[in-house]
C-alpha cells in the first residue's frame, strides 16, 4: 500500500481539525446504517467499527483509549443494538488490539488485517449475543456479515490512510 506523498510545500491540516478527522470519519461510518438500505437481513458491515479499527491499527495515536466508548455510544443510538453493547465491545476490541500490539514486533498489513478480523468477529458475535435471543436464526447471516466485514477492512484501511495523509504533519 503506497500512497502518493503530500505535495511539497502543502501545509498539513491545523491540529484541531487533524484531531477531529478520525472522530468524524468513524461517526460518519456509523451513520451509514441510517441510509435507506431497506435490507431484509442485517448484512451491512459495521463501517464505524471498521474505520475505528483501521485508525487504531494504522495510526495508533489518532484515537485515545477512551474514544471507543463514546464512538460506540453513538453507534448504539443509530444501529438498533441495545444501548451500551458497542460501547462495551468496541472498548474491549481496542484493548485487544493494544494487547496484541504490545506483544508483536514489526508488523505488516496482513498481520494488521488478521488482528482486525479477530476483533471484528468478536465484536459482531458479542453484539448478536446481546441483541437477539439464542433461539433466533441469525447465525448464518452473522457469519456472512463477519466475512463481508473482514473483506471490506482493506478498503477501510485505504480510506483511513488517505485521510491520514491529509492530516499528518
Amino acid at each position: 500500500m503506497t500512497l502518493p506523498a503530500r505535495p511539497l510545500f502543502q501545509e498539513p491540516l491545523p491540529p484541531g481539525r487533524a484531531r477531529l478527522l478520525p472522530w468524524a470519519s468513524v461517526l460518519a461510518g456509523s451513520l451509514a446504517t441510517t441510509l435507506p438500505w431497506n435490507a431484509s437481513l442485517g448484512l451491512l458491515p459495521p463501517l464505524g467499527l471498521l474505520l475505528m479499527l483501521a485508525w487504531r491499527l494504522l495510526a495508533p495515536l489518532s484515537l485515545r483509549v477512551w474514544a471507543p466508548a463514546l464512538l460506540g455510544l453513538f453507534d448504539d443510538l443509530v444501529s438498533g443494538q441495545p444501548l451500551g453493547s458497542a460501547m462495551l465491545l468496541w472498548t474491549l476490541a481496542f484493548f485487544l488490539v493494544e494487547a496484541l500490539e504490545a506483544r508483536s514486533g514489526m508488523r505488516d498489513f496482513a498481520q494488521s488485517w488478521a488482528i482486525a478480523a479477530v476483533a471484528i468477529a468478536l465484536v459482531l458475535a458479542g453484539g448478536r449475543l446481546f441483541a437477539s435471543p439464542l433461539s433466533a436464526y441469525v447465525d448464518g447471516v452473522l457469519v456472512l456479515q463477519i466475512i463481508l466485514s473482514v473483506l471490506l477492512f482493506p478498503a477501510a484501511a485505504r480510506l483511513v490512510a488517505w485521510i491520514d495523509l491529509k492530516r499528518a504533519r
Binding site: 451509514a32 441510517t34 441510509l35 438500505w37 451491512l44 458491515p45 459495521p46 448478536r128 441483541a131 441469525v138
Partner: peptide, 9 residues
Amino acid sequence: VSTSASSTR
C-alpha cells in the same frame, strides 16, 4: 426510510 441494516435486530 431505513431499516437496521447492520444489526441482528
